[in-house]
Amino acid sequence: SYYEILDVPRSASADDIKKAYRRKALQWHPDKNPDNKEFAEKKFKEVAEAYEVLSDKHKREIYDR
Rank of each mutant, 00 (worst) to 15 (best):
D31S: 13
K45M: 12
Y63M: 02
E4I: 09
Q27Y: 11
E38D: 10
H29E: 09
E41A: 14
P34K: 13
S11H: 14
S55M: 07
D35P: 05
R60T: 02
D7Y: 04
Q27D: 06
L54R: 00
D56S: 06
N33Q: 06
R65A: 11
A48E: 14
D16C: 11
P30R: 05
H58N: 15
K24V: 06
E4Q: 11
K32M: 15
R10I: 12
A25D: 02
P30E: 06
E52L: 12
A20L: 02
A25N: 06
A40I: 04
E41R: 12
K45L: 12
W28N: 03
S11G: 12
A25M: 14
A40H: 05
P34L: 13
L54E: 00
K57I: 13
E49W: 07
V53L: 04
E38L: 11
H29V: 05
K18C: 12
F44H: 06
K45H: 10
Y63D: 02
A50V: 03
A25C: 15
E4F: 09
Y63V: 03
I62H: 12
Y3I: 00
P34T: 10
K59A: 11
K37S: 09
I17W: 00
Y63Q: 02
S55Y: 07
D7F: 04
E46C: 09
P30F: 04
I62E: 15
I62V: 10
V47N: 02
K57P: 15
D31A: 10
R60E: 02
R60P: 01
F39L: 13
K18E: 15
E49T: 09
E52F: 11
K19M: 13
S11M: 09
Y2K: 03
N33A: 04
K57G: 09
D64W: 01
A12R: 00
R60M: 03
N36T: 08
A50D: 01
I17S: 00
L26N: 11
V53A: 04
A12D: 01
V8T: 03
E49P: 00
S13V: 05
D64Q: 02
K43N: 06
K37M: 11
F44T: 06
K18T: 14
A20G: 05
L54C: 01
E52Q: 12
D35S: 12
E4M: 10
H29Q: 10
E52D: 12
H29M: 07
E4S: 10
I62Q: 12
L6E: 00
N36R: 12
A40F: 08
D16N: 04
V8D: 00
A12M: 01
H58S: 13
L26Q: 15
S11A: 09
D7K: 04
E4A: 12
V53I: 13
R10A: 08
R22M: 15
R60Q: 03
V53Q: 04
H29G: 10
A12H: 01
R10M: 12
D7T: 03
A20D: 01
S55W: 05
A48V: 15
Q27T: 06
Y2G: 01
R23C: 13
K32R: 14
I62P: 03
K42N: 09
A14R: 08
A48S: 13
K43M: 15
Y21V: 03
K42G: 08
Y63G: 02
L54G: 01
K45E: 07
H29P: 02
D35Q: 12
V47L: 14
D64L: 03
D16H: 06
V53R: 03
K18P: 00
K42F: 12
K45C: 10
